Simulated assay, not measured.
Amino acid sequence: MGENNSTTQIGTIHSKDFAHAYYDESHRNAALTRHHHTQNEVIFVKEGQCTFDIAGESYTIRKNQILLISALENHSTHSMCRPYHRYVFVSSMDLCSDYIHDPVMASAFIRSNHYRGVIDLTQETADEIEGYFKILVSETANHKIKWKERCATTLFNILILLYRDNPELFIIEKNPEDLNVIFSIKDYIDHNYSQPLSLESVAQHFYINKYYLSHQFKEIVGYGFKKYIQLIRINKAKILLQNTNLTVNEICTKIGYDNINYFIRLFKEKEELTPYQYHKMYYKNYSL
């Protein structure tokens, strides 16, 4: 029998899930279509390799390597070489914003100037990280008391290991005061995206200069202030489109926009689908 090469349509991990982890062994070559996910993703390869396209850049991840993908970025997998064995942990943005308060650790999911793509692991670190992934698989499957807290703690432990071996991949050269201020503002946006937000009003709220805010936010977060707000609002819109039957107009209002045509244009630019098309494709239609 010849090689089984196929293209697989992968659904979205359900956004109501706080977190989900799994181990998978693929024994066929495949190309996955563009992901429209709403969660952060951590991929740890045990065997084989896979090439991801993220924000126009290609990253090939191999055995004993790890890749972190932000919830704000769509990505595609355009080649997968068998056998491809990997652990995957997907988690809502709330996990980082609500449980991981160390800005250096939280910066792992920010594609800023420090980002270098795939992270190499020593065998010792890979073995330890596999143990943590097994905990994540168990916790997200069984949902025992305080499972969310344990998932957050376990992710934090993984990030610490990555930081110890690869400190250059994290934002450490910045003044700690700048990091704390900007991540406080990022957290403020994450929780107040539905409210009117302007550079001037947020700078005033935090008693800082708006030009300082604009420069430092772009430098640390990797997106301009306005762009980041747009991405957060689109992310929240995707969650509502996947999980509710709210109208596009209602969703537009809930995420902080008062111009539905502007919202639809932004959404289509980011997702290559209109909100209606996205809802039709992903509402209650997901797989792992």
Results as ranks from 00 to 15, higher is better:
168 E>H: 03
85 H>I: 01
199 L>N: 01
80 M>R: 07
176 P>C: 09
145 I>R: 14
198 S>I: 05
211 Y>G: 02
90 V>A: 02
38 T>F: 15
119 I>N: 11
110 I>V: 13
231 L>R: 10
201 S>H: 03
88 V>R: 00
30 A>I: 04
184 S>C: 05
23 Y>R: 00
207 Y>M: 11
68 L>Q: 15
214 S>K: 02
201 S>A: 05
131 G>Q: 15
210 K>M: 00
35 H>L: 10
212 Y>F: 14
97 S>M: 08
115 Y>V: 03
137 V>G: 00
72 L>N: 06
192 N>F: 14
182 I>K: 14
132 Y>V: 05
98 D>L: 04
273 L>N: 06
193 Y>F: 15
11 G>D: 00
71 A>E: 11
24 D>R: 05
182 I>E: 07
208 I>R: 12
61 I>D: 00
264 I>R: 10
1 M>V: 09
130 E>N: 07
154 T>M: 05
9 Q>I: 10
130 E>H: 13
186 K>Q: 11
161 L>Y: 13
209 N>C: 02
100 I>A: 06
115 Y>K: 04
125 T>L: 12
140 T>P: 11
106 A>V: 11
75 H>N: 08
77 T>Y: 05
71 A>F: 15
266 L>T: 05
75 H>F: 08
34 R>S: 02
238 K>I: 00
2 G>V: 14
133 F>N: 00
185 I>H: 06
265 R>T: 09
22 Y>T: 06
46 K>Y: 03
52 F>R: 05
271 E>V: 07
45 V>R: 04
107 S>P: 01
233 R>F: 13
105 M>K: 04
122 T>F: 15
